[in-house]
């Protein structure tokens, strides 16, 4: 269970203004919101990459910010994070990048073959051909491939919780579908708790148990996909309409 309690964060101006949210264990939760409203900031607070000015985040009852170093290390070990722009290590090849996703202690204990097997499997899961990409460095990959390697790195450590920052933005429709399928499969089969920030409203609504919309630093909406679609809230409706228009435009431009 992830629990955000009254999370505030300001940079030059207030970004998060009191976010309260509770995501149950095993739940697949989608977070929508316009660009620049602090979705990435909220995700980063979950594993202590950004410290809130006020409030706290708890993971399975353990405070991320007041639990001390050990608690934070445990949280980071349990959580896999998919960065918006992949954030691959430029100087490592794909194999070493994905390897870094395995917790340090485990990496030392596991036999080499087992590590290789897990890396291989992770790359297959994100629809990449391991034998093709393993030796390449990130600058030799396309944006979409980098993104998928980043996902592979986040899942190879078998996390209990996955935080996805726009995992399908910039992917072609086939890979978008593959990643969405992967997200639901991880949640169904392995009971991974997932929090997915996405601009793909249809995809998000289709796979998630509950959704929320972040707007101007607070949660504007939180509920089931059906409630979201039926919401009378003007902001929510405007957001759905705009996203639909953008999606239509995107499909149009692809034809």
């Amino acid at each position: 269970m992830i629990r955000y309690r009254n999370v505030h964060k300001a940079f030059d101006y207030p970004v998060l203004r009191g976010v309260d949210l509770r995501i149950e264990t095993g739940e697949l939760f989608a977070l929508f919101g316009p660009s620049g409203t602090g979705k990435s900031v909220l995700l980063k607070t979950t594993i202590g990459l950004i410290t809130p000015d006020r409030g706290d985040v708890e993971l399975d009852g353990v405070s991320v910010f007041f639990g001390g170093k050990k608690a934070l290390a445990d949280v980071r070990c349990k959580v896999g994070y998919v960065f918006q722009n992949a954030a691959l290590f430029d100087s490592f090849n794909v194999y070493d990048n994905v390897c870094m996703g395995i917790p340090e202690a485990e990496l030392k204990a596991l036999p080499r073959v087992e590590v290789a097997r897990r890396v291989w499997r992770a790359l297959e899961l994100v629809n990449l051909d391991p034998s093709q990409v393993m030796g390449k460095i990130p600058s030799e990959l396309s944006g979409g491939m980098r993104k998928r390697v980043g996902i592979g790195r986040a899942i190879v450590g078998r996390p209990e919780v996955l935080l996805w920052d726009e995992p399908t933005t910039g992917l072609d429709p086939i890979n978008t579908a593959a990643i969405e399928q992967l997200i639901s499969r991880l949640s169904d089969e392995l009971k991974v708790t997932s929090l997915v920030v996405t601009h793909d409203i249809d995809g998000g609504l289709a796979i998630s148990d509950r959704v929320a919309m972040l707007d101007q630093g607070t949660l504007r909406f939180c509920g089931t996909p059906d409630e979201f679609r039926a919401s009378e809230d003007q902001k929510v409706q405007a957001f759905i309409d705009r996203a639909a228009a953008e999606a239509a435009l995107a499909t149009g431009s692809q034809l």
Partner: peptide, 17 residues
């Protein structure tokens, strides 16, 4: 600096390094 702005430093931390 490049590693900071491309979130590689965040990535190290998120992976417990």
């Amino acid at each position: 600096g490049t590693m900071v702005v491309s979130e590689q430093i965040d990535a190290y931390q998120s992976l417990g390094r």
